[in-house]
Design a binder for these strands. Structure first.
Lengths: 391, 391
DNA sequence: ACTAATTATTTTAGTCCCTAAAATTTTAAC
DNA sequence: GTTAAAATTTTAGGGACTAAAATAATTAGT
């Protein structure tokens, strides 16, 4: 849905405020292009709602002193919750500035129905809230991130891998169970929202986020809005084919998916095969990967060929994306590439060689380590975006 | 630039009017969701400007008869002009309904400066106008399509292959030479605009257009607006890598570009090599291709392997695009795939096999033959879009 | 021919959200 | 205290929309 001019302006103001806080109304005039009167009206509403607080500033120059505005760090808490790759629910409480105030983890029972998963989320949330000794009223919103196809406007989940297909009113189930308004989105979208609102590239409104974890996911911000495609299917970057026809088979049934070379799971599988070891069970993946990297670093084993091939293909895939889409920036989250200089070299060589010449070196690239709190920050970002947004 | 609510509503109304013409104001109320008063105001302006005309309808039912509205078929002419792949300027006059009223072609001299090219365009336009015995006042706008990097808001050209890099105020040069306001855009963007305003998928506002010609180009409509990337570089679909590292070399300097397999030029080169013939000169390409297809159809030669490989890779590239972007529709223009059933089968097999399962068969696909008038229709579409649009 | 019914369009009054500019507030410096 | 300066708020006004009343233009019935 298109935002009305009013919604657009309010969201613009909130984003500028968040990105430059603490900031006075005068600055917001310059930052947003709106006039003082409008700033007064919109900020009055935000202060009223408790989303923004005023903060007196001691002034040293003549003139009425500025009143700084900040996102309220204590009044409105958001609980962000996600399913991790290895079968846990990660629950974290943050304020609207994205600062963590507590974390809690619970194990997920295997289930086949999404409704059941929603129930487990509700239980985990209930426990976490009890553990933090919070009253329901202190919690402004709950934000859930799921590895599947979600309509973030309705909170309805269409599909999650290994579960029976939906639709399932996930948001409704959690919300009713706890009596707290709940928003739901794809988990990679949450990471992108976190970057957009709280990241170093906070000023970027046209970027692609790529998350390299056990699986590979991507999300697209364009014109300051998350886009999710005609069928709501978040960009399945990991299943674009990088070695068509003859490549490694992927669990999606295809061959030569980027995922099959470059996801942490695939790197583990390839490494284990190379070393003649058995692949670990699903919930031992993360530990196994850390172990492999340690052994590799100490020289006990050599998995350079696997890491380099993964990185090389990631570079090509990003090059293809840049060539087709010309985003302002690409943010890559995940351990393998970010960690080692040698892999960075490999990545940039592949990127440069395979990007359309006119676009080479023009796209901004950021590497970041994965950070578990990012999901909760993304939840807070989603809440802020929903203060006004139509979508 | 974001459209204001007003611009958005006016453009919405114009698009709905165009897509359903002839149409009465009452229908526009339903089509746009605006109220009658607003429709009256906006259409009054359009009629005033001569873009829309009223048309009495004899009614057979009780009640005040509806007054149909149409895009003016005769008052406002647009000249669309493009450089064809084989070194000609194609100039065509159309009305705002996209109907052709005359065509003219001129040969281009080789040049190295874009300013020189602009001069040749101006001369060709001047000749064409004289030939059609038109007065300058009859021509509403000129629309130019160029195979390069163009900022359609300013008419400034940054880059055209084989020419010295810009910037060059192409629009300004043509406009001053002829005394007629001139808009400039990338030529594939014009094809996309033509589809959006006049195509069978006219109701689609989120689609990708892929043009398979001597070269391969693409354009992206999202949310009813053409998007052109952070650096204005129209989607270089043809230079995404389909056989990375080991594929055929491409003129861009890379290897394994889709272009190197699937563009008409590459199909010719591969076919000639296979047949032990010499490749034709650049301006004989189109004729050569027609010849090859004829010989192939009659059984004199067999270029199935080349055609099938090209089609197979096109299918994979489209699958990757769909997997990453989830567009509502993909429109493919160009002779090879569209023409032969056997190739369609090949294409759909590759598409289906390489699309992320949840997206299979959900994206609408249209094949169309290339049509030279499409550029001029695109020019008319650009003019309509600029009646209100900020970009 | 006249009236009633019906439908399309236009007009009117009012609202919302913005801008521009004047007014007010609050401070430092003298 | 008074003045100058800067930040913020208030006020007046405008543009574009909506809702609803008014008007226009027709057919059908008598």
């Amino acid at each position: 849905m298109r935002l009305s001019d009013q919604e657009y302006n309010r969201l613009l103001l909130l984003k500028k405020l968040r990105a430059s806080e603490p900031v006075a109304r005068t600055d917001l005039v310059a930052l947003t292009g709106l006039t003082g009167g409008t700033i007064t009206a919109i900020t009055a509403d935000l202060v009223n709602r408790g989303i923004v607080i005023e903060e007196k500033v001691a002034s040293s120059s003549p003139g009425r002193p500025r009143v700084n505005l900040r996102i309220n760090p204590s009044g409105k808490y958001v609980i962000g919750t996600t399913a991790t790759g290895d079968g846990h629910v990660l629950t974290e409480i943050v304020n609207l500035r994205g600062e963590s105030l507590g974390v809690s983890t619970a194990k997920l029972r295997t289930a086949t129905r999404i409704e059941d998963l929603a129930g487990q989320f509700a239980a985990a949330l209930d426990n976490a809230i009890a553990g933090w000794e919070l009253r329901r009223e202190d919690i402004f919103r709950i934000g859930v991130g799921l590895p599947g196809i979600v309509d973030c406007r309705t909170g309805i989940v269409e599909q999650i891998v290994t579960y029976e297909p939906g639709p399932c009113d996930f948001g409704g189930i959690v919300s009713r169970a706890l009596g707290i308004p709940t928003l739901v989105d794809n988990n990679i979208n949450l990471l992108a929202r976190a970057e957009h609102w709280y990241g170093a590239g906070a000023h970027t409104s046209d970027f692609t986020l790529i998350n390299v974890d056990l699986a590979i996911g991507a999300a697209l911000y364009r014109g300051g809005q998350l886009i999710s495609g005609a069928h709501g299917i978040a960009s399945e970057f990991g299943h674009t084919k990088i070695v068509p026809d003859i490549g490694r088979p992927c669990f999606c049934g295809g061959r030569g998916c980027l995922q099959a070379y470059c996801s942490v799971q695939s790197i583990i599988e390839q490494s284990c095969k190379r070393l003649g070891r058995a692949s670990p069970a699903y919930d031992g993946m993360n530990a196994c990967f850390d172990g492999l990297l340690r052994e590799h670093a100490s020289g006990e084993i050599d998995i350079w060929p696997v890491l380099e091939q993964a990185t090389h293909y990631l570079g090509i895939a990003v090059a293809n994306h840049v060539t087709m889409q010309d985003p302002e920036a690409v943010i890559i989250l995940g351990p393998p590439v970010a960690k080692m200089d040698r892999l960075r070299t490999t990545f940039f060589a592949a990127l440069e060689q395979n990007t359309f010449p006119a676009l080479r070196r023009r796209t901004k690239l950021y590497f970041k380590f994965a950070d578990k709190s990012a999901y909760a920050r993304g939840a807070a970002a989603m809440v802020l975006e929903h203060v006004y947004a139509a979508s």
